[in-house]
């Protein structure tokens, strides 16, 4: 099923073009890493997809489910400062991910609530459900936000730099969680470095004002450079070694 299609999308701020004639199609089952240097337009593309920005030109179309409903997109925004003392429980944070599908209806159904509990269990933070969000550690908080992005049972999950402020251990757990999620949800993962991602994702999109789609997760520095997509292929700890290999059958 086609979830999302970007055709010749261009956008910029004031007179400066940030992304130029971008094409991308996302289908069910996809797990795409969107990589590229800071300022290259990755977050801009996400904001366009989420409807937070209107493209200068080009066409953005969303797919339709078999039952005729519009596709639903879950969103984990880039880390931003928020009031750690804000009075909201972890459970309510997760439920707030239903805002776009609930529209005017203001009460959560029993199904919504049981789904929230289910997700908290899946994210491994069920014992924290009544805590204030500010009481959580960075990794736990990110799980709560992932739960918020997943509660609407999206067809596509978009994550904008999800591992920037979390520790290495959580980074690894997060990727395993995403692999599991990918069984029934397409994923678009934005990252400024390729790090561990490569071994988990299926395909790669390089964004540096323009977008180059690489239909494999095996990517070398040469390829990145030929895309004009300068990415540091350096990461901490144990790197899945095929990251640095060229297209070989090694797996």
């Amino acid at each position: 099923m086609m979830i999302l299609k970007l055709e010749n999308i261009s956008y910029g701020y004031k007179a400066k073009t940030v992304i130029n004639s971008v094409n991308l199609e996302i289908h069910s089952g996809d797990f795409i890493a969107m990589i590229g240097p800071n300022g290259g337009g990755k977050s801009t593309i996400i904001k366009l997809i989420m409807g937070l920005l209107k493209p200068w030109s080009g066409k953005l179309s969303y797919g339709v489910r078999e039952n005729g409903e519009a596709v639903n997109i879950g969103y984990l925004p880039q880390y931003h400062e928020f009031d750690k003392r804000f009075p909201i429980s972890v459970n309510d944070v997760v439920l707030s991910g239903l805002a776009s599908v609930k529209k005017g209806r203001r009460n959560y159904s029993r199904l919504d609530k049981s789904r929230a509990i289910e997700l908290l269990v899946r994210m491994g933070i069920s014992e924290l459900s009544n805590e204030s969000i500010g009481e959580l550690s960075g990794g736990q908080m990110q799980r709560a936000f992932l739960g918020r992005a997943m509660i609407s049972q999206p067809d596509l999950l978009i994550l904008d730099e999800p591992i920037t402020y979390v520790d290495n251990k959580f980074e690894h757990e997060m990727y395993h969680l995403l692999q599991e999620i990918n069984n029934n949800t397409a994923i678009l993962l934005v990252s400024h470095d390729i790090g561990q991602i490569s071994s988990f994702v299926k395909t790669i999109a390089c964004v540096n004002h323009s977008l180059h789609y690489h239909p494999s997760n095996k990517i070398s520095k040469d390829i990145l450079e030929s895309y004009n997509c300068p990415i540091e292929l350096i990461t901490h700890g144990k790197i899945p070694h095929r990251v640095l290999h060229n297209h070989t059958a090694h797996d």
């Binding site: 969103y75 925004p77 928020f82 009031d83 805002a99 609930k102 203001r106």
Partner: peptide, 22 residues
């Protein structure tokens, strides 16, 4: 009473509230 959840969500996380079409 009518918009409590939206008001809470906007106060807590404005960018996410925007992304949800509020």
């Amino acid at each position: 009473i009518t918009f409590k959840r939206s008001i809470q969500l906007i106060s807590f996380d404005e960018p996410f509230a925007r992304s949800q079409g509020i």
